[in-house]
């Protein structure tokens, strides 16, 4: 190097001393996510036709679809938010939305059950491992 300096960083360091922090004061201020942020998967269960393509495309195998019972089950711990299921769904009833699900100490699944159609009422769904969610596209905090 041609010329050496003793304090090239001094200006930056002094400026830094009197500037505001660069980080967000979460949780006192809300975290801001961009629209595309891959937070968690939601389902519009009324539109689901139980084809099972989402479950087959899911790399970690986080999804289970039961055609007879009309249920769609996701293991939130296994899901890696890749978006493969969203692209595979023919009915476009899956979406990845911003915001993380609440952290948990144990593995749990969430099951969504399709409401019976007025014309062709399917058999009563079997009781699933986790309580069925009446409002499928609810916010993660409520869905847990």
């Amino acid at each position: 190097m041609d010329q050496w300096k003793f304090t090239p960083f001094l200006h930056t360091a002094l400026k830094n001393l009197f500037s505001r922090p660069d980080t967000v004061a979460y949780p006192f201020k809300p975290a801001v996510y961009p629209d595309r942020m891959r937070g968690h998967v939601v389902i519009q269960i009324e539109d689901c036709i139980s084809c099972g393509l989402c479950a087959r495309s899911c790399p970690p195998g986080a999804l289970r679809v039961d055609r007879a019972a009309g249920t769609w089950t996701i293991s939130r711990f296994d899901c890696v938010q890749c978006g493969s299921c969203v692209n595979a769904c023919p009915k476009k009833c899956l979406a990845i939305v911003p915001g993380y699900t609440t952290p948990d100490g144990e593995k749990h699944t969430e099951t969504f059950t399709r409401p019976p159609k007025p014309d062709a009422a399917p058999a009563q769904p079997k009781p699933a491992a986790a309580p069925a969610q009446p409002k499928p596209a609810a916010a993660p905090e409520q869905a847990q």
């Binding site: 190097m1 010329q3 050496w4 300096k5 090239p8 960083f9 200006h11 930056t12």
Partner: peptide
Amino acid sequence: PVADTFLRDV
């Protein structure tokens, strides 16, 4: 200034 520090600082 950051690059300068890496390349020129004694």
